[in-house]
């Protein structure tokens, strides 16, 4: 019993993390239809920013978090303007190839700058975990969970309740009409990419202190993010959040009671299963087919 409850607690905490990874990608991949291979590198960028700021420059942990998000947004904006703005309206595979190129360049730049040796970031939370009967969870993870929920809520509000969010949705639903309505298409593209990048960097900055920081850390994060986004449905913040929690539960229970070797396969197996049973996906949207 205690074991099951601990599994469920772990899954909830992990789910918050996964949701955070997913929402950044769902904006760029789901709304912009750019297969964003730099998502994992922006995540790593956030973690390295955190390391540089908090560990090398001695900036306050929480200030460093905010700065990492801002730097992530800035890098995202630069990537969008330099790499993607010339490819508006190009095929999905053309933009993808550019993003693959950027992914390779970014990951190896990280290794060149920081070497392959893993780094760790100290956190200001108590070292002893929060203990509740047979259960325990680290304070740092509780903080990450809370911060993730806050960022998710903020993003949801931004996309669904603000003028900017409305403009984003309009732009990617129907460019021409949106342009006619006076929306500045280029700015919306850049803003969306910057927002998604900022969320990826936030995830990296939050999780860097939980895990370790290494140049290849982004690859795993990206593969999880892709699974989460398809589970939840493209372009929906709610979907990505749910997708994150579903993936975490499936992985945790799968590893706990089936086989830990298949832990990382669970999400992908689930996707294929869903496709077999319900090709329209868990959270059906009509754009999904055709």
């Amino acid at each position: 019993m205690g074991e099951l409850v601990q599994h469920l607690l772990n899954a909830t905490i992990l789910g918050g993390t996964y949701a955070l990874l997913g929402i950044g990608l769902t904006l760029i991949f789901g709304i912009m239809r750019v297969v964003n291979f730099t998502h994992g590198e922006l995540y790593a960028f956030g973690a390295y920013c955190m390391y540089a700021l908090a560990m090398l420059l001695g900036v306050n942990f929480f200030v460093a978090l905010v700065l990492a998000m801002i730097l992530g947004a800035a890098l995202g904006a630069v990537l969008e303007i330099v790499l993607l703005s010339r490819l508006r309206g190009a095929d999905i595979d053309t933009t993808m190839l550019v993003m693959i190129g950027a992914w390779i360049v970014m990951q190896n730049t990280e290794q060149l700058v920081w070497s392959g040796v893993a780094l760790s970031i100290a956190n200001p939370f108590p070292a002893d975990p929060l203990v509740m009967g047979p259960l325990s969870v680290s304070w740092n993870r509780v903080f990450v969970f809370a911060a993730a929920l806050l960022l998710i809520a903020g993003t949801y509000h931004l996309v669904n309740r603000t003028r900017l969010g409305k403009a984003m949705r309009a732009t990617f639903q129907d460019r021409d009409t949106a342009a006619l309505m006076g929306i500045r298409i280029d700015r919306i593209h850049t803003a969306t990419f910057a927002l998604g990048s900022s969320l990826a960097a936030a995830a990296g900055a939050l999780l860097g202190p939980v895990f370790v920081v290494a140049p290849t850390m982004g690859d795993l994060a990206a593969s999880k993010a892709f699974a989460i986004v398809i589970l939840g449905g493209l372009g929906s913040v709610t979907g990505a959040t749910l997708g994150g929690f579903i993936l975490a539960f499936v992985e945790e229970i799968g590893a706990g009671y089936i086989s830990s070797g298949y832990r990382d396969a669970m999400g992908f197996l689930l996707i294929i299963l869903i496709l077999l049973v319900r090709p329209t996906g868990l959270f059906a949207q009509k754009e999904r087919i055709g």
Partner: peptide
Amino acid sequence: METMDPKATDFSAQLAKIKA
């Protein structure tokens, strides 16, 4: 006897099982 992917970073499920 629990396994993990060489790239994995979260081992909470495995550790909970080991604890039990």
